[in-house]
Amino acid sequence: MRGRVWRLVVFVFIVGFTLNLVGIVSHVAVSSLARRWFATPLPGAFTTEWYAYAWHEFQLPQVLTVTATVAASVTALALLLGFPAAYVLARRGFRAKNAVLLLYFLPLLIPQMTYGIPLATSLYRYRIGGTVAGVILANLVPMLPLAIFVLLPFVEQISESLEWAARVHGAGRWQVFRRVVLPLALPGLLTAGLLVLVNTVANFELTFLLSGAGSQTLVVALYYAVFAAGMRPIYSVDAMAVIYMGIVLLILVAALRFVRPTQMVFRLGGK
């Protein structure tokens, strides 16, 4: 009996929280389609013109180009540098392993505002700050460890005896990589790639600290638009928000085909 009540309370809480999420998201969507909306359940008239307005006013073609460039570069670099690292971590023990793991873990643990300011200071000093390259390099700091930690269990589950079997039966190191390791690690690369992609698109703090006029990604542009609310109609800001949401959701849906929702956050591992 007590158990039932308890479960009911939990269920009601979950439903409430979910409704609040749906409300938050759909309020933005409805607002983006409103001609005018003021203290009524729904706007009196709908329009799609705010999208065209936002497209021009917020220079979305340029912002989207930067976003795509940053996201694609960070993803490619994170996989390129991260896969070899994940492979070694999965396969070998070495003396500095714990130190290396800590080094990978810290950028994920420490909030970006904390290390972003010294990082930005350094990058501006070398005139990389404010450029697209600077945004890419900065985003790679947390995304590289993310890629490594996502890849790690995927590599671990490729039995080493498969590599041994390939070696014994005549495959050299490169052939083992190309014919055995790579095809078997593909789901992991895809998963890691999608997670890095969605996280880079949505990553605010580092991009915010490192981007200049021509190197803002969509989420930073959205921040400035919300920050300067009142300069432009809120409906157009929400139209930009919906565009952003659409992009993130698209990648998210793709990612969720490969990973469970609980894999989208840190995984706590017991002994």
Binding site: S159, S161, L162, W164, A165, A166, V168, H169, G170, A171, G172, Q175, R179, V180, P183, L184
Partner: peptide, 26 residues
């Protein structure tokens, strides 16, 4: 040499034919 492993170590992404062909292929 040829080797048969305790857990067989068959390549899960290759068909029976390609598994057997592996050593010749490389």
């Amino acid at each position: 040499f040829g080797m048969v492993f305790q857990n067989y170590a068959l390549f899960p992404h290759l068909s029976v034919f390609d598994n057997v062909a592996f050593g010749l292929d490389v």
